[in-house]
């Protein structure tokens, strides 16, 4: 089971399309709208809580992305692509909650995902872009 809060941004051209109703009809997901608004630039913004099976959730997210909705994170998973991480340690002073730790002996940088609050700062500052965001 997944229970996640996500932020959807609808570009102007998508605002009056029934995307969310399709999402719910075609995928076996429970949902709660936590917030919905149209911004000054006529962009739609919606915060949704989605509950359901992992597989259905992933299909739903894929549907939204395909439709052109921009997804933003609220309580998403941040993971590290171990293949890409060079253990430079650049993330250490960037993370606001100290989720990265330098081993003084091996000089390797470990990532404690339990501490991560999903702020996303490391995603854009990791030089080889080893930190990834998953919805």
């Amino acid at each position: 089971m997944v229970d996640k809060k996500i932020v959807l941004r609808f570009p102007k051209r998508l605002v009056d399309r029934p995307i969310v109703s399709h999402l719910i009809k075609d995928h076996d997901l429970e949902f709660t709208i936590l917030k919905a608004s149209v911004t000054q630039d006529e962009e739609g913004l919606m915060v949704l809580e989605l509950k359901g099976k992992q597989e259905e959730y992933e299909k739903g997210i894929a549907y939204l992305k395909e439709a052109g909705v921009i997804l933003e994170s609220l309580s998403q998973d941040v993971t590290r692509n171990e293949e890409r991480c060079t253990h430079c340690g650049a993330c250490i002073t960037v993370c606001p909650v100290g989720a990265f730790e330098l081993d003084m002996v091996t000089r390797q940088t470990s990532f404690h995902d339990k501490k991560c609050i999903g702020c996303g700062i490391c995603i854009k500052t990791c030089p080889p872009r080893a930190m990834e965001l998953h919805f």
Partner: peptide, 13 residues
């Protein structure tokens, strides 16, 4: 002040 490296010492080793 906390410090961070941009080059990788483990990879240099």
């Amino acid at each position: 002040v906390p410090t961070a490296s941009l080059s990788s010492y483990p990879r240099a080793a």
